[in-house]
């Protein structure tokens, strides 16, 4: 091997090591077959190119040009009648034989289907995780909810769940005064509680203000008398009357479940439904996580 080839292979190795170093830093599972094959491919690209190109460039130093010339000559350019380089010729022939084999035997026998493979991937995934975490502990649930939240919810609610200064609901608090007031004034009917819709105008003027302050304040102090208008549905403790209407003091399981199922439309904007994206266990995990970040 000449010095050039060694240098080139050194460069290839450096590139691959750098790649692996970065990838490992991101906690990538290199045993995942797709990841492993991709790394294999990368290694093949770097090393084969480095080796073969420098092999030929090396010949510029060591070999001399030989071979018969053809009769023609174009603008001073001659052409030799040398045979094909054998390594090239046999590899070409080999790939052609492989291609024919692949099409007439390999592919039909293997019978690959990408949707079939997807179905297997999903089943394997279920087998690996579903049972294991079917009865996840509360702390596991919370932990599980965290990455779900970052991937699915943070684009709207922000990484800390604070709603990005009013662009989505602030999940670190139960509910704000303006949200309560909006519901009192305009009603609400997207969440799909057994009670159906919340009618508009259950209170007004100063009464509404007082109720909103009281609820948004986390039920501190004396309940305003007018809030009786609410308790018939939301329960005397405002905890939702056993799931008949939303719990106004905490993110209970029922509330999160209804929000994820139906989405929510309110004064801030619209939250989409996640019913096609979130599995039951993921819903539990998200609930546990949200309950953990609320102040």
């Amino acid at each position: 091997m000449n010095a050039l080839t060694i240098k080139a292979l050194g460069f290839a190795a450096l590139l691959i090591i750098a790649t692996l170093a970065v990838v490992i830093q991101m906690d990538i599972d290199l045993t995942d077959s797709i990841n492993a094959i991709a790394v294999g491919g990368a290694i093949a690209i770097a090393t084969i190119t480095a080796y073969v190109t420098t092999l030929y460039i090396g010949k510029m130093k060591t070999d001399t040009a030989t071979g018969e010339l053809v009769d023609e000559n174009w603008d001073g350019i001659g052409e030799r009648t040398n045979e094909l380089p054998s390594g090239w010729a046999y590899t070409f022939l080999g790939t052609i034989i492989w291609l024919v084999w692949y099409w007439f035997i390999g592919y039909p026998v293997f019978g690959f289907s990408q949707i079939g493979q997807y179905n297997e991937e999903v089943l394997a995934h279920k087998a690996r995780y579903e049972k294991k975490f079917a009865a996840a502990s509360p702390s596991e649930l919370k932990d599980m909810g965290k990455s779900l939240f970052f991937v699915q919810c943070a684009p709207c609610h922000g990484n800390t769940g604070d709603g990005l200064s009013g662009k989505a609901h602030d999940l670190t608090k139960r509910i704000s005064k303006s949200e309560v007031l909006d519901v009192i004034n305009n009603g609400s009917n997207k969440l799909g509680y057994p009670m159906g819709m919340m009618p508009p105008g259950m209170a007004s003027g100063k009464d509404a203000e007082d109720i909103a302050t009281y609820i948004a304040g986390g039920l501190k102090g004396e309940a305003p008398a007018s809030s009786a208008a609410c308790t018939s549905c939301h329960g005397a403790d405002f905890k939702g009357n056993n799931g008949m209407a939303p719990n106004l003091v905490a993110y209970d399981n029922t509330l999160i479940s209804h929000v994820l199922e139906n989405g929510k439309k309110g004064i801030i904007g619209t939250m989409p439904s996640f019913k096609t994206m979130i599995t039951p266990i993921q819903e539990k995990a998200l609930t546990a996580y949200i309950q953990s970040i609320v102040e």
Partner: peptide
């Protein structure tokens, strides 16, 4: 590889 990465519970680790 980050797009594919899952956490110990089998959920995606990285947001886009």
């Amino acid at each position: 590889m980050m797009w594919r990465a899952v956490d110990e519970y089998g959920n995606l680790v990285y947001s886009f």
